[in-house]
Computed example of a mutant assay.
Amino acid sequence: MTVAEEQHRRVAQERRNRWLERGAVARAHGVPVRCGGMLETGIGRAPNLALAALPGFTLPGDASASSRYFAEDVTEPFVLQDGRLPVPRTPGIGTEPLPDALRRFRGARRDLYGGAAGRGR
């Protein structure tokens, strides 16, 4: 794992922990909570679904099937089952990016560290 990937993982973990704390505080005070995420790719949609499935998240969110927002996603598509999105059950964020889709959709690539791309630091 590169330094940049590790830093991103830490930021994502801190963000998730803040939402878990906020949800717990709201639940303790009887305040209903909603998790949005309408225009997330599958990379963001998977953890949003896991968060929205937690106790206290009782207001309807706006996550839907991938095809509602994208002709093609960067992960396997999320598909409604009986009008609901299943919560991913795999470790990590619950889905994996599709490398070919990432290559097609990414914009210009820059090396932020001045060395060979993909070298890690």
Rank of each mutant, 00 (worst) to 15 (best):
R16A: 01
N17P: 00
N17Y: 01
N17L: 03
W19S: 02
L20Q: 02
E21A: 01
R22F: 06
R22Q: 15
G23S: 14
A24F: 02
V25T: 12
V25L: 11
V25Y: 05
R27I: 06
A28E: 14
H29S: 00
V33E: 05
R34I: 02
G37N: 08
M38A: 13
L39Q: 09
E40G: 00
T41C: 15
T41S: 15
G42S: 08
R45T: 08
R45M: 11
P47I: 04
P47H: 08
L49R: 10
A50S: 12
L51Q: 13
A52Y: 08
A53H: 10
L54Y: 02
F57H: 10
T58C: 05
T58Y: 07
D62P: 04
S64E: 13
S64L: 04
A65E: 07
S66I: 05
R68C: 12
R68D: 13
A71R: 15
A71L: 12
E72F: 11
D73L: 08
D73E: 07
D73S: 10
V74Y: 03
V74N: 03
V74A: 03
V74R: 01
T75I: 01
T75F: 01
P77L: 13
P77T: 13
P77S: 15
F78W: 07
F78Q: 02
L80F: 09
L80W: 07
L80S: 02
Q81C: 03
G83K: 04
R84S: 07
P86G: 04
P86K: 03
P86R: 06
R89F: 01
T90Y: 11
G92C: 07
I93H: 04
I93M: 13
E96L: 14
P97G: 09
L98F: 01
D100S: 11
L102F: 05
R103C: 08
R103H: 11
R104F: 06
R106W: 06
G107W: 13
A108L: 15
R109W: 13
R110F: 15
R110E: 10
D111L: 10
D111F: 02
D111P: 02
